[in-house]
């Protein structure tokens, strides 16, 4: 338990260190765009596929619950709203944790144990500025692209299964999306997506950057990244849901 708390503390300190470097030093936009491209391309296929199936599953689940009430007209709106608000961001964060998080911690960890990070410092550069920061920002930005992609495909998945499984035509499926998918649910989704991306980015770069103990250490860093990000993302989901709810109530006065 003490270990977990001290780890969490170190991650938070590392986060502020990244922010400090971001504020003080310039960042090569070329390095950053390379990373954004890499992260997005790495995860586009898996995220898109997962999005498609989530849309499909949501549609099936809602159909089974709603058809007895004869409320299938609202199917598209409800499935899409749930995806944007909750399942989409969570799913995409898990996807990114599995792919990008593991990859980034392994990459930085390998650079650490092969002394490349020390070499960068000896050659007069700041590894936080040149290695960690571009990856950190790239993960956060890419996760928005991937969220958009995932949501788009989840709507396709929903439409397809609406036609095949529920007998709802695609005009009917789409009709209630604008009425049910409200601005608050979109904002909640975006906010969650942002928080999850930051959590993932800071944990995987921290784990990679602080790897010790050779090839075995790199393996351990990847495992710790996977476990740490999944657990923290679930906790963050709960906290952000609560925060979003409170904020929306306060703002909308309901």
């Amino acid at each position: 338990m003490m270990g977990v708390i001290s780890d969490a503390g170190k991650v938070v300190i590392f986060f502020f260190r990244i922010l400090g470097v971001w504020k003080r030093k310039s960042i090569s936009s070329q390095l950053m765009f390379e990373q954004i491209w890499k992260v997005t391309m790495q995860s586009a296929l898996t995220t898109g596929m997962a999005g498609f199936f989530v849309g499909a599953i949501m549609t099936i689940q809602f159909t089974m619950q709603m058809k007895d009430f004869g409320a299938l007209g609202y199917l598209g709106g409800l499935a899409t709203s749930t995806t944007i608000r909750e399942v989409g961001p969570l799913l995409i964060a898990f996807m990114l944790a599995g792919k990008v998080g593991a990859f980034t911690s392994a990459e930085l960890g390998t650079m650490r144990v092969t002394e490349q990070i020390d070499a960068i410092r000896c050659l007069g550069a700041d590894p936080i500025q040149e290695l960690v920061l571009p990856r950190f920002i790239a993960i956060v930005i890419s996760s928005f692209f991937l969220l958009g992609l995932g949501l788009l495909l989840s709507i396709f998945g929903g439409i397809l299964l609406g036609e095949v499984f529920s007998g709802v035509s695609f005009e009917e499926y789409l009709r209630h999306i604008p009425t049910i998918v409200s601005l608050p649910s979109i904002l909640t989704g975006l906010f969650k997506c942002f928080i999850f991306a930051v959590v993932l980015a800071v944990i995987c770069t921290y784990r990679g950057y602080t790897t010790t103990g050779g090839a075995k250490g790199v393996g351990l860093a990847v495992v710790k990244t996977a476990v740490g990000t999944m657990v923290t993302i679930v906790i963050a989901d709960w906290v952000t849901s609560l925060l979003a709810d409170i904020t929306l109530r306060a703002v909308l006065g309901t």
Partner: peptide, 9 residues
């Protein structure tokens, strides 16, 4: 410093 490993990028 020349590192023990090549430590090339």
């Amino acid at each position: 410093l020349v590192f023990q490993q090549p430590a090339l990028f």
